[in-house]
Design a protein around this nucleic acid. Structure first.
Lengths: 158, 158
DNA sequence: GCTATGTTACTCGGATATACAATGTCCGAGTGACTGTGG
DNA sequence: CCACAGTCACTCGGACATTGTATATCCGAGTAACATAGC
C-alpha cells in the first residue's frame, strides 16, 4: 500500500512549473533531465495532471506543460487524486454480509459497516491535511537558491 | 494505492475472535466459511497478525487462533501496520537532488524535502485516527443480533 | 510582399513490454488432544 | 488403572502459480511556430 513515484514527480514538477511561470510552456524533456526521470513515463503522469485540469499542455514547436491555475489553487490532494485515482485507501467489500455470517441477520445490515466508517474517518483526516497544503506553500518553504540555477538551465539547453 | 483486502478480513476476524473470547481458539476453517473467504490465503494473513502479537495461535487438534490481547488494546493501526507493513504511504526518493537540478545546489539539501514533510504530516493524521479506534470500539458500535448466530454457528459445525 | 508548402519540435493517445506485488494454492513438518492397546 | 503408540485436526513455513498494477518504452497522428519556395 504505497503511493506511486509519480506523485513525487508530479508535485516537484508542479513546483518547478510554478517557478517558471511566465516563461511559457516547459517541454517534458527539460523536466525529465532536470530531475533525471524517464521522459516517456513522466509524460504519461503529466498528461494525467493535464486531464485533471492542474496542468495545461500546449502542442506545437514551442509547446510544453504549464500550470493551469495559480499555485495557491493547487493542493497536494489535487495532485494525489489526479495521479492515484479517486478510489479510497480502504475498499469495503462487505464481507460481513457474506458467507454463513449473513444467514441469520437479515435487517441487521441496514446500517453501515463499522469498520468502513472508522477507516473512512481516518482517510478523511488524511485528505483534509493534504487539501490544506498548496504548491504555493511548498514554494514558500523551499530554499530557492536553486531558482536561479533553474532559470539559467533554460539557457543551457537553448 | 489501495489497502489489500486482508485488512478488512483481519479487522473483522479480530472482532469475531473478540466475541468468541473464552471459547478457546477458533480454527481458520470456521472463520473462512463464516465470511466466505479463501481459507489458505486467510491463513497467511492471520499468521501475519500472529507474528505481530495481535493474535495467538495454538497448534493441535483443538487449536486455532485467538486474540493475544484484550480488544481495548488492539487498534486499527496495529492491524493495518501488521498486514500492510510499516512503510509510509509516500516514499520520498529525493528526486530534487538528482539530475541537473542538483548541479548548482550544494548546501541546499541539508533541510528536508518540503514535499516529504507535508506528506508525512498528512500521514500522521491518518495514523492518529487509526490509533484512536480499537476493536472494542467497533464491538460497541456493531449491532450484535448476529452474536447469537455466531455462537450457534459453532454448534452447527460440531 | 504575400501566400502556400514543408520542416521541426512538441503533445496526445494507444499498444505493448517488463518488473514487481497482491492474491491464491499446495505440500511437508510440527504439535497437542484424543483413542486404543498392552501390561 | 496406567504407560504408550497411533490417529486426527489443527498450525507453521515455504514453495510455487496466477493475477493485477506500476513502471517503462515505442509508434503513429495532430498541432503550432518557423522556414522556405513560388507567385
Amino acid at each position: 500500500m504505497r503511493m506511486g513515484e509519480g506523485v513525487e514527480w508530479g508535485v516537484h514538477c508542479c513546483a518547478t512549473l510554478a517557478w517558471l511561470q511566465g516563461e511559457g510552456p516547459v517541454p517534458i524533456r527539460r523536466l525529465a533531465t532536470w530531475f533525471d526521470l524517464p521522459q516517456e513515463y513522466l509524460k504519461k503522469r503529466l498528461q494525467a495532471l493535464a486531464r485533471a485540469g492542474i496542468l495545461a499542455s500546449t502542442p506545437g514547436v514551442r509547446g510544453g506543460f504549464s500550470l493551469a491555475r495559480a499555485p495557491e489553487q493547487i493542493t497536494l490532494l489535487d495532485v494525489v487524486t489526479a495521479l492515484e485515482g479517486p478510489a479510497e485507501l480502504f475498499g469495503c467489500s462487505e464481507i460481513r454480509q457474506r458467507g454463513a455470517g449473513s444467514l441469520g441477520g437479515d435487517s441487521e445490515f441496514v446500517q453501515p459497516c463499522g469498520v468502513a466508517v472508522a477507516m473512512r474517518r481516518a482517510e478523511l483526516a488524511w485528505r483534509r491535511e493534504l487539501a490544506g497544503q498548496t504548491i504555493a506553500d511548498l514554494m514558500a518553504l523551499a530554499p530557492r537558491s536553486g531558482e536561479r540555477t533553474l532559470r539559467n538551465y533554460r539557457n543551457m539547453t537553448d
